[in-house]
Write a protein that binds this DNA or RNA. Sequence first.
DNA 1: AAACAAAGAATCGTGTTGTGATATAATGTT
DNA 2: AACATTATATCACAACACGATTCTTTGTTT
Lengths: 146, 146
Amino acid sequence: MLAMAPKPIQRERTETLAASLQRLALFRYEMRRFLRFSEQAARANGLTPQQHQLLLGVAGFTGRGWATISELAEFLQERHNAVVGLVQRAARQDLVQKKNSLDDRRVMEVRLTVRGRRLLRKLTEMHLDHLRRQRAPWNLRQIIFR
Amino acid sequence: MLAMAPKPIQRERTETLAASLQRLALFRYEMRRFLRFSEQAARANGLTPQQHQLLLGVAGFTGRGWATISELAEFLQERHNAVVGLVQRAARQDLVQKKNSLDDRRVMEVRLTVRGRRLLRKLTEMHLDHLRRQRAPWNLRQIIFR
DNA sequence: AAACAAAGAATCGTGTTGTGATATAATGTT
DNA sequence: AACATTATATCACAACACGATTCTTTGTTT
């Protein structure tokens, strides 16, 4: 009897794991569908998905209308050097504008150009429309924990 | 008087846009923070983030325990060819196993290897733990619409 | 059965992106 | 003056997704 006890427990554990996997998969699937919409909206406007996020971070993260490389790295949850390259490419395409801070000359201030502002505005409207129309269970946490 | 009416409307619109930008930014920021945790958990176990998602899709998306390239493309919200490459690289590292279907020889059946199953199990536990501890406003929709 | 269309997967070249390691410059601290 | 810290930049490299195209197998039409 002592030897038989673990068996049903193991079976129950396996079933729990399978159920968890399915709920986690659905969780990520819903998230990916939103992100996919976003990516395609960006591309349809000639931007890469990350460039769109960069514009959003510059305009909306700090509440100041501009941001430093470090702040953008925090917003994007990326390393500094990833953001440096991203900003460089975006600046080349006249989406943002770099300027060394006068207070602290180590700091790089990133602002939107007119073109960047125009594109972000359009994308923002598309996203808000999409989210409003969305009937999907956007309480993602609820997907996982009943 | 007719000429002055539009001014406050314009001002209000601008304020609404700024507020929307800030809420959208927070929305994406929270999402990125979760995704960042996930990416680092994957990397800490020697996987790329996409490889982890691939394993999750194979094991949890269809309810069958295996998946086709097309199904994985739907789950990952990527194009077929992106998944083909992803599966190839994952197979090279003994994470998944490819097998042509006997029913329809166009179809490729993707399954987890023992190694893939072991890694996914570990990552799944880490993710569930993380989500349980999470006190953040995981009703993302609520972040945007009051 | 032949001709054609559709579905599923694979291949190729290309540009973006993130990483890790390292470097540079400006500011702070002792 | 020596040292550490902060903020940003550079480099080589692999993963990755894209678009376009191709190949094979299955389905449908005539």
